[in-house]
Nucleic acid binder design. Sequence first.
DNA 1: GCAAAAGTGTTCGGGCTACACCCATGG
DNA 2: CCATGGGTGTAGCCCGAACACTTTTGC
Lengths: 251, 251
Amino acid sequence: MKIKGNLIIFSTDNEERKDVRRLKEKKLQLLLLDDNTFPIFDVKKDEYIKDAATYKMEELFGTSKFYIEQLYTWGDPKYYTNKEEVIVTYLGIINKKNIKTMLKNMDFYDINIENENSKIQKVTLCNDSRKIQYRIETITKRERENIDYINKLVQKSEIDELTAIIIHTGIKRLRNRIENTNIAFSFLNKEFAISELQQIYEIILDKKLIAANFRKKIEPMIKKTNKIVKESAYRPSSLYTFNDAFIRNWV
Amino acid sequence: MKIKGNLIIFSTDNEERKDVRRLKEKKLQLLLLDDNTFPIFDVKKDEYIKDAATYKMEELFGTSKFYIEQLYTWGDPKYYTNKEEVIVTYLGIINKKNIKTMLKNMDFYDINIENENSKIQKVTLCNDSRKIQYRIETITKRERENIDYINKLVQKSEIDELTAIIIHTGIKRLRNRIENTNIAFSFLNKEFAISELQQIYEIILDKKLIAANFRKKIEPMIKKTNKIVKESAYRPSSLYTFNDAFIRNWV
DNA sequence: GCAAAAGTGTTCGGGCTACACCCATGG
DNA sequence: CCATGGGTGTAGCCCGAACACTTTTGC
């Protein structure tokens, strides 16, 4: 069996607000090629897989400022583009401010997830010109005395099943990582307002957080700078940076 | 690049006690081949990787009662046995009571981990005839504005670096899974005493737990049967089973 | 002055920790 | 009857949820 890599890349964008005085709301986005798949890369002989994924990211965006980690290796032959290939997926996070170049055949799509019930999720991906929708079901099954989960597309869709499953897995990984690591900072500039950080948490966890509690919770992870942000808002907020002294033994 | 699989398999054993009246203490164990590596398997064309790992487990132990999940795919060329192969590791858990056959060139080794300091761990693996020791270091580094971890053998050892890293990663995964899933039950019979379950938690988390609190914490995960265990102990304990109704959306 | 965001303080409740205490058993 | 493990109860503490309240700014 041969191996190939692909990349699921998350970013954020600011929603336009009619009332210019209000905070811009962030939304979670995902990179898709025009054919509704993810960027693919080859792994050369004598090359780290992570390096191959890194080079691909650099090729896509013309920068080396981003985060990546391995997501999963897909071993189901029905997903393979080629029956002799296995796909290893890397998860990337990029701050759009760091993007230098964008290829023509790809775009960032807003992600919207609606829980139809505890098992079925309706996912909508859209950019300015296209809107892709699908529903994915999580099936719990007992197998060899152990509980196992399988995800399936409810109907055939524009998007193929492996892509839908990678999106599902990627978002679950983001949700897990944001609680246990510092990945949230990968979406932001080096210096940021607490409300921006809170918005990253909100769009990934898909729920509103209470600012007062959020502030107290992340306080040990950040350091206040003496700068303030001035961007036609009301009371200006201080800028913060990640606190290097904050180390957690994340798994 | 081609792909191969291997298996890190955990189990437990009961320590002999001088005082026969006391509870047998469990210890965490790991399967190693005589050459200090893990069992390897090929992935055939048109075969799920997970199925290939499952067949290998069945071949090793003559049973289909065990747990497996994907651990990680190792993309560092310096670890490859063959420069054109990538290794995907699956993590297995087996209850020794379910083992029907054992091949001759392999054995379960007790695992003992000693934290020399916050960065260096001293690991000892031993069975009746052999004792393997190595020290592994966790190095934190900032890379592209993100914190990354790398594990390295402190000195050359009988065990090769990839094997040491897989053990390290496997134990971290166990510790993460035991807090968020029901894998602990994979080590036990279908019916078990709470103290047995507690011992699984203790040997994986490597710390003593207070029985009264443990009982309350796992209470929603288990169901009491009307059977009791009679094994030359003192007050007999009730037997419990996993409570199927307990479902957590583990990541 | 008012709307909206920045930032602080306080109360409440649930879950974890630590420990005291009773029950059951076999030697 | 006593050592040991099974099992229950409870008091204290910490952390997160909820929310009231003050401060700062632009219009």
